[in-house]
Design a protein around this nucleic acid. Structure first.
Lengths: 144, 144
DNA sequence: TTTGATGCAAAATATTTGCAGGATA
DNA sequence: TATCCTGCAAATATTTTGCATCAAA
């Protein structure tokens, strides 16, 4: 457990958001200015293999990471990419249904909701316009 | 509707598999040897915006495409990446539950099952080994 | 003919990796 | 001290884009 690995883990656990590797890199850099993006990627991989964090493969081009390893659902904003938790019980019986309907050996599923985050809802009401102004924004990983 | 676009659409509709852009490119090249990968990407984008095909953003690094635009579930093989349809009714009421549990404006969800395809199950039984030998394979887009 | 699409190649984006030097247990 | 990790930079993989030419409606 190196200093870098510890700081990465601590920072991720502080967040209720679900940062990309790059967003976490920027954050960690405030404490370790000489850390490299490669190190962040390497440690996120190791930490998720140890089960200390969760690697999220949601829609959108980037992987995201979650310091909360309990099983729970996520919503992703189609406009700004922000990801949040959904406080609902993961639906039961889904895997069983799929097992009955497929010749694959089902081991689980990935469920992701998509929609508009509160910020983008507000922006959409103010200007029923395009997404451009929001797309360029923070991508939803401010510290909690 | 150019020749290229038509061939891309026809080839995709012929498949029960869910090819990546690159896999489809190789297939279309048999009929249009001078087509470029960029054209394939551009047309897949246009066709999915017209609602003629479906763009799938599943786990794994690559986007996949589906000539069947009806709503249905998919399974992805964690070992070889192959994607297949699951003949089950999409679960009802999911979005309503999420709406009650989130401040996002939920517009839908993405549900993907993960598991082992029949081929990888067989391979796993023969050699309860690593995935290396299979990973290098066809990635599951043979014509059907 | 006009408009939009193509092929090519380079750019952009996200992630991984080789290597020499450095920090950790 | 031995080992694993780091920083750096280059490589990889996937997708997008600029541009001159070409084809479709």
């Amino acid at each position: 457990m190196t200093r870098q690995r510890r700081v990465i883990l601590e920072e991720l656990r502080k967040l209720r958001s679900h940062p990309t590797a790059d967003e976490l890199y920027e954050l960690v850099r405030e404490q370790l200015p000489r850390i490299s993006l490669g190190t962040v990627y390497r440690n996120l991989e190791i930490l998720s293999q140890c089960g200390l964090i969760q690697k999220l493969e949601l829609g959108g081009p980037q992987r995201r990471f979650d310091g909360n390893v309990a099983e729970h659902c996520h919503v992703r904003c189609t406009r700004c990419g922000r990801v949040a938790d959904v406080a609902m019980a993961p639906p039961a019986g889904l895997d069983e249904s799929a097992r009955a309907a497929s010749d694959y050996e089902i081991v689980g599923h990935r469920l992701e909701f998509v929609g508009l985050c509160p910020q983008c809802q507000a922006a959409g009401i103010r200007s029923s316009n395009d997404a451009a102004e929001v797309e360029g924004g923070s991508s939803g990983s401010e510290a909690g």
